[in-house]
Write a protein that binds this DNA or RNA. Structure first.
Lengths: 354, 354
DNA sequence: CTGTTAGCGCCTTCAA
DNA sequence: TTGAAGGCGCTAACAG
C-alpha cells in the first residue's frame, strides 16, 4: 500500500515530521533550502499522502458523493441522460481537488439499508448529489434536515442545506407547445412522466399554461402518463390515440417516450411528421438518430452536472449558493415536427389500422 | 459530521471503548447482555463508524476504484456501452461490502497528473477497474507492475496483479461473418475500430479467420478503420463503398459505427437490408430502435461489470482468480441483415448516387 | 469476558 | 525557521 510516509521522508532528510508536513502542504514558514530537499526526497520516494490519516485529523475527506437512484433496467447509469451529467459533475469536482464516491441505494430500501446521509457520514463525505430522486422517496425528510450539503437533480427540497439544479421545465414545455401550435396544431397531446418525478408536474404546468396562452382548450383526454421509457411511451400513445384519433401532435416528456410514440405511430401506419408531429425532451444522443430525427428540448446535461458540483463545493466552503439553479432547455427543431396536414386526418388512418 | 463515536457509546454504557468496538464488530467474546446494551445505545445514538479511522489502522479502505477513460464527448460515462457495465460492477462490489470511488484520468496526462496507481494509493483504494484503456496509454507499465489488483476491460496486461474481463471477440465476429455468409454474401467488409483498442485486433482476427474457414478470399480493400463513433463509421463506410461498390454486407465493430453505416447507406439510397446487410457489435439500447433494427453481437454488459468486481475482490482477499475471463457475445439477428439480393447490385445504386 | 496500552499517518497548537 | 507533544477514531495485541 501507501509505503512512504512523512516519517520516512523526515528521517532521510534529517528533519522532523512536522517540518515535512508543513513543507509539503505549502506553508511559508520553512526555509527555501530544506523545502527543496524535502520535495526532492518526496519525489524520489514517490510519496503519496495517506488521505485517510489526513481525513481523520482535519475532519474533511475531500470526497463528494453521487447517488444514482432508480438503477433498474434502463435507469441510472445506463440511462442515456445520466452520462453527461455525471461527466460534468466529475469534472467540476476534480477541478476543485475533490474525489467522487458513488453509492448504491436500493429503492425501496431493504431492511438493513441506511439513509443517504448515514452512508455519507461513515465515509465523512462532505456533500452529495442525488439523481433520480422521487417525491415518494422514504428518505426525503432525512435529506431535508441534512447537515451536509445536498444537491438534488430536478427536485427542490426546501431544507437548510439542500439545493437543486434542473431545467426550467415550465418555460421549456411552453416553447415546445407553442412550436406545435405555430405549425397549426390544435389537438396537442402530452405523454407525461409519472407523478413521482417532480419534473412531471412542472412539465404539465408548462403544457397547461401554453394552451391557455395560445387560446387552445384543455382536454383531459389528451393527457397520458407513462414511465419515461420507450415501451411506456408507446403504450400510452397507442391507448390515447385510440380514444382520441384526432390528435395531430404529441409532446412527450422524454425522448425515450417520444421514441416510443414514433414506434407506435409507425405501427399504426401514421407518418411522422406528415400525419403526426412529435416533440421529445432531453435531446439524448439517440434523438438525432431516429427516423425522423426528433424535435426536442435540449437539456444542458454536462452543465447541469457541473453546476451541481459547483454548488456543492461552495456550500461545503460555508458559502450560501442559491438554493435552486434553473438552466434553460432549448428547443431543437428536427424532422419530427411539421405543419399540420389538413387534408388528411389521423383519424382515418387509425380507424383503418384497427 | 460523524458525531457519535465509540467513546460516546462506551461512556453511556459504562464499558471500555474496546468492548464497544468488539461488540459492534461482531466478536464473540462479549457477554450477551453488554452486547445488547451496546447495540441499543448505538442505535439510539445513530452511531456510524468513522471509516477513515478504521482504514488507518486496518490498512484496508473497503474501496474499489473505477477509471472510466476516454471521457471525451460521447465516450466514458456517456457512452451507451458503459452504463450497464458500471451497474454490474457497482452491484457486485456493494454486495461484498465495498464502496466505489470514481477517478477522473485525463488522457494524455497533463503534467501534474498521477498514475492510476498513485491515485489509488492516496485513498488506500484496494483495487481498480479500468474501462476504455488503450494500448498506447502512458501508464501501462505502471499498471503491469501494480501491487494492488487491477482489472481491465477488454485489455489483458500480463502483470502479476492484473486481470481482464471481456468478450470472446474472435469467435463472436466469426459467428457474425458466418451469419452473413450463410445469407449468401461473399463481399463482406469490416468497419473496424482503431488499432489502439485491443478489441480491434481480436475482431479483425475473427473476421479474417471466418473468411478462411468459409473459403472466402480476403480483400484488404474491404477493411476500413474508424473511431467507434457514428460519424466515423459513416465516413469510413462511404469511402469504402465508393472504392468497392460491390460490397453487399458490412460488419461494423460497434453498434455506433453500424448506425453510421445505416446513415451512409440511407444517403446513398441503399436499402438495408435489401441492398446491404449490416451487423453491429455491442447490442446497445439504440440497436433495437434503429430502422431497421440492428443485427448485432450482444455483449453481456452487466455481467462483465459484475465479473470485474468479483475478480477484484477475490484478488483483494489473496485468492488468485483467472487472469482473463472471456464471456460469450451472442448474435442477435434483427432486421438489418437478409439474403443477398442477387438481382440488383449495390454497384449501380452507388454509381448513380454519385 | 473485559480493560489497558499502543499505535495507524497526519495536522496543529505551542515552545524553542 | 524548526521540533515536541497531543490527538483525530478506531482496532489489535496483551493482560487480567
Amino acid at each position: 500500500m501507501s509505503r512512504t510516509t512523512l516519517k520516512d521522508i523526515a528521517e532521510k532528510v534529517g528533519v522532523s515530521v512536522t517540518a515535512v508536513s508543513r513543507a509539503l502542504s505549502g506553508y511559508p514558514d520553512i526555509s527555501e533550502e530544506t523545502r527543496n530537499r524535502i520535495f526532492r526526497i518526496a519525489e524520489e520516494l514517490n510519496y503519496q499522502p495517506n488521505i485517510a490519516a489526513r481525513t481523520l485529523v482535519t475532519q474533511k475527506s475531500g470526497v463528494l458523493g453521487l447517488f444514482v437512484l432508480g438503477r433498474e433496467k434502463g435507469e441510472g447509469f445506463s440511462h442515456p441522460f445520466s452520462g453527461q451529467v455525471i461527466n460534468g459533475f466529475l469534472d467540476g469536482l476534480v477541478e476543485q481537488g475533490y474525489d467522487m464516491m458513488v453509492f448504491k441505494a436500493n429503492r425501496p430500501p431493504d431492511s438493513g439499508s441506511s439513509s443517504y446521509i448515514d452512508l455519507c457520514r461513515r465515509r465523512m463525505v462532505e456533500g452529495a448529489f442525488l439523481m433520480g430522486l422521487r417525491t415518494d422517496d422514504p428518505w426525503i425528510t432525512d435529506l431535508k434536515s441534512s447537515s451536509i450539503p445536498i444537491v438534488t437533480m430536478d427536485m427542490p427540497l426546501a431544507g437548510e442545506m439542500t439545493f437543486s439544479v434542473g431545467c426550467d421545465n415550465v418555460s421549456a414545455v411552453h416553447a415546445a407547445v407553442r412550436h406545435l401550435a405555430d405549425l397549426g396544431h390544435t389537438r396537442i397531446s402530452i405523454v407525461n412522466g409519472y407523478t413521482q418525478a417532480s419534473v412531471s408536474l412542472e412539465r404539465f404546468e408548462g403544457y397547461r399554461s401554453a394552451l391557455d396562452d395560445l387560446g387552445l382548450p384543455f382536454d383531459p383526454s389528451l393527457v397520458a402518463e407513462a414511465d419515461f421509457t420507450v415501451a411506456g411511451g408507446k403504450e400510452a400513445f397507442l391507448t390515447m390515440i385510440d380514444r382520441t384519433p384526432d390528435i395531430t401532435a404529441v409532446f412527450a416528456a422524454s425522448d425515450l417516450m417520444a421514441l416510443g410514440v414514433l414506434e407506435g405511430a409507425r405501427e399504426l401506419g401514421l407518418r411522422v411528421p406528415k400525419d403526426l408531429s412529435v416533440v421529445g425532451f432531453d435531446n439524448i444522443d439517440m434523438a438525432s438518430m431516429s427516423s425522423p430525427p426528433l424535435t426536442t428540448l435540449d437539456q444542458p446535461r454536462y452543465e447541469l452536472g457541473r453546476t451541481a458540483a459547483k454548488i456543492l463545493i461552495s456550500a461545503c466552503n460555508g458559502d450560501t449558493p442559491p438554493s435552486r439553479v434553473l438552466l434553460k432547455a432549448n428547443l431543437i427543431v428536427r424532422g419530427s415536427t411539421s405543419e399540420r396536414n389538413k387534408g388528411k386526418s389521423a383519424k382515418g388512418v387509425v380507424r383503418q389500422a384497427r
